[in-house]
């Protein structure tokens, strides 16, 4: 597995130090190449790319309203096809708010129509760009500014991957920058498949997760190892595959590096561990077909 040496994402972007979303873009573009168009709804990346007249992405970017990433990307693809361009990849690049919450209608519609786009959700598990408010991607018991320590998030994280699987789209994958070869393979594969592809990236956010800037890769790796965020592929909504399956570690190891979980007790962590274990068992059953 060779990751391209070509840097398409330019330096000078304005992501925070340790931003998982910036690194994710860097690797995604290496895999996708320059013949790619990005549609970015309101999210951290609408800032990260840089203010007018600057742009760091190195490929065309269309900034769009919060809830409209998928339908706009589908429109871009249709516009290219109408002009005889069948080769350019169109990528919607949205955060968890724009995917799990406000953008889910357009995403669902686009997936149901199997529009030929790659939809990437870089999931930093809250509305980080507006100052860390809970989204439906925020994990159980996490602190955010709208789920304060005295009343942390009471609900489980929405299972976006299963929602997308229910659309029976040709390709779904999860990835993180801690496993760049796996991420690269998945983007290359997504590019080669016709129809709607959904890639779910776990994207650590040091200011929002109250973690150290230098720990983002470590946290990403622990998310996978603890099985909080398994690395998988789903073909046609039914063929499940675990692509990286390292020796497991305790969920506690993942959680204790993040200040957003500082208030939770060992009992709480036990409970989370049980949820993770149960989800892993369910996943294993699915991989058995």
């Amino acid at each position: 597995m060779k990751i391209s040496d070509e840097e398409i994402l330019n330096p000078g972007h304005v992501a925070c130090p340790g931003c998982g979303a910036a690194l994710s873009m860097r690797f995604a573009l290496k895999a996708l190449g320059r013949d790619t168009i990005l549609v970015i709804p309101a999210c951290c990346w609408s800032v990260i790319d840089g203010p007018f007249p600057y742009s760091s992405a190195g490929i065309p970017v269309f900034h769009m309203a919060f809830e409209a990433a998928a339908s706009t990307a589908a429109g871009v693809k249709a516009g290219l096809l109408a002009q005889g361009n069948t080769h350019t990849s169109v990528v919607a690049w949205a955060g968890d708010g724009g995917t799990f919450d406000i953008g889910i209608q357009a995403l669902s519609g686009t997936a149901e129509r199997n529009a030929d786009i790659i939809y990437v959700c870089y999931d930093n598990e809250a509305y980080q760009n507006t100052g860390i408010q809970r989204s439906s991607a925020t994990p159980y018991l996490a602190w955010t500014t709208t789920t304060p320590v005295k009343f942390p998030k009471q609900e489980q994280k929405k299972d976006i991957v299963e929602i997308m699987a229910a659309h029976r789209i040709p390709y779904i994958a999860t990835a993180t920058v801690a496993f760049p070869e796996d991420l690269t393979k998945k983007f290359i594969k997504a590019k080669s498949i016709k129809g709607t592809k959904f890639i779910h990236l776990l994207s650590p956010c040091p200011p929002g997760w109250k973690s150290k800037d230098q720990d983002s890769i470590k946290i990403s790796r622990l998310a996978v190892k603890s099985r909080v965020f398994p690395l998988i592929e789903i073909e046609n909504g039914e063929k499940y595959k675990i692509t990286v399956n390292p020796k497991p570690v305790a969920v506690k190891d993942y959680i204790r590096l993040q200040g957003r979980f500082r208030h939770i007790s060992d009992e709480n962590i036990e409970q989370i561990q049980k949820n993770v274990d149960r989800n892993w068992e369910k996943l294993l059953k699915k991989t058995e077909g």
Partner: peptide
Amino acid sequence: HSALASCIGASAAGA
């Protein structure tokens, strides 16, 4: 909403 979003995308792509 998606109708106009798709038109916006298509038009931005030059169609």
